[in-house]
Amino acid sequence: CAFTHRPCSHPRLEGQEFCIKHILEDKNAPFKQCSYISTKNGKRCPNAAPKPEKKDGVSFCAEH
């Protein structure tokens, strides 16, 4: 993984420079932040999710 703030030993995603944990660092990657919002604390999930086809579409990470 090419994350520069600290060493990361996670494997890169195929065709990308970053792992799934750090892929949002790459603005050109086909990922965006997960659209899930917790009902308990109102916070948005920080994980990466595939970018949807539509610009305003929602997309969820593997956990959600």
Rank of each mutant, 00 (worst) to 15 (best):
C1W: 00
C1G: 01
C1D: 00
C1T: 00
A2V: 04
A2D: 02
A2P: 02
F3I: 15
F3K: 04
F3G: 07
F3E: 04
F3A: 03
T4D: 07
T4Q: 02
T4P: 02
H5P: 07
H5A: 12
H5L: 12
R6M: 11
R6P: 13
R6T: 11
R6Y: 12
P7G: 12
C8I: 00
C8L: 00
C8D: 01
S9R: 06
S9W: 07
H10A: 09
H10M: 13
H10W: 09
H10D: 04
H10V: 07
P11N: 04
P11W: 01
P11L: 06
P11K: 12
P11C: 04
P11T: 06
R12A: 13
R12K: 03
R12C: 11
R12I: 04
L13C: 03
L13V: 09
L13E: 03
L13N: 01
E14I: 05
E14L: 09
E14G: 11
G15T: 02
G15N: 08
G15S: 04
Q16A: 09
Q16R: 11
Q16S: 11
Q16E: 04
Q16W: 05
E17M: 14
E17C: 09
E17L: 09
F18C: 03
C19Q: 00
C19N: 00
C19L: 00
I20W: 05
K21P: 00
K21Y: 04
K21W: 06
K21H: 15
K21N: 09
H22P: 00
H22S: 01
H22C: 02
H22G: 00
I23N: 02
I23S: 07
I23K: 07
I23W: 04
I23L: 08
L24F: 06
L24H: 05
L24S: 09
E25H: 15
E25A: 08
D26G: 05
D26N: 11
K27Y: 05
K27E: 11
K27L: 07
K27R: 09
K27I: 11
K27A: 14
N28A: 09
N28V: 09
N28W: 03
N28D: 04
N28P: 05
A29T: 08
A29V: 05
A29F: 03
A29I: 03
A29S: 13
A29C: 07
A29Y: 04
A29Q: 04
P30W: 01
P30I: 07
P30G: 12
P30H: 04
P30F: 03
P30Y: 03
F31D: 08
F31E: 08
K32A: 12
K32W: 04
K32Q: 07
K32N: 12
K32I: 08
K32F: 03
Q33C: 04
Q33R: 11
Q33N: 10
Q33F: 05
C34Y: 01
C34R: 01
C34L: 01
C34F: 01
S35T: 10
S35H: 03
S35A: 14
S35D: 13
Y36K: 15
Y36R: 13
Y36V: 09
Y36A: 11
Y36D: 07
Y36H: 15
Y36G: 11
I37W: 09
I37S: 12
I37G: 14
I37N: 13
I37M: 15
I37D: 03
S38N: 09
T39V: 10
T39S: 09
T39M: 07
T39D: 10
K40G: 05
K40R: 01
N41E: 15
N41H: 09
N41S: 13
G42H: 08
G42R: 14
K43S: 14
K43I: 06
R44D: 10
R44Y: 11
R44F: 08
R44Q: 15
R44L: 13
C45L: 02
C45Y: 01
C45G: 02
P46H: 07
P46E: 14
P46I: 12
P46L: 11
P46Q: 10
P46T: 13
N47S: 14
N47D: 15
N47C: 14
N47L: 13
A48G: 09
A48W: 03
A48C: 11
A48N: 04
A49Q: 03
A49Y: 04
A49P: 05
A49M: 05
A49K: 03
P50H: 08
P50F: 08
P50K: 06
P50Q: 04
P50I: 06
K51C: 12
K51D: 13
K51A: 14
K51G: 14
P52T: 09
P52N: 15
D56E: 09
D56S: 12
D56L: 08
D56R: 12
D56A: 10
G57R: 02
V58N: 06
V58G: 08
S59K: 05
S59I: 15
S59N: 06
S59F: 12
C61A: 02
C61K: 02
C61V: 02
C61L: 02
C61R: 01
A62M: 10
A62C: 14
A62I: 13
A62T: 12
A62H: 11
E63Q: 06
E63M: 07
E63H: 15
H64Y: 00
H64S: 03
H64E: 00
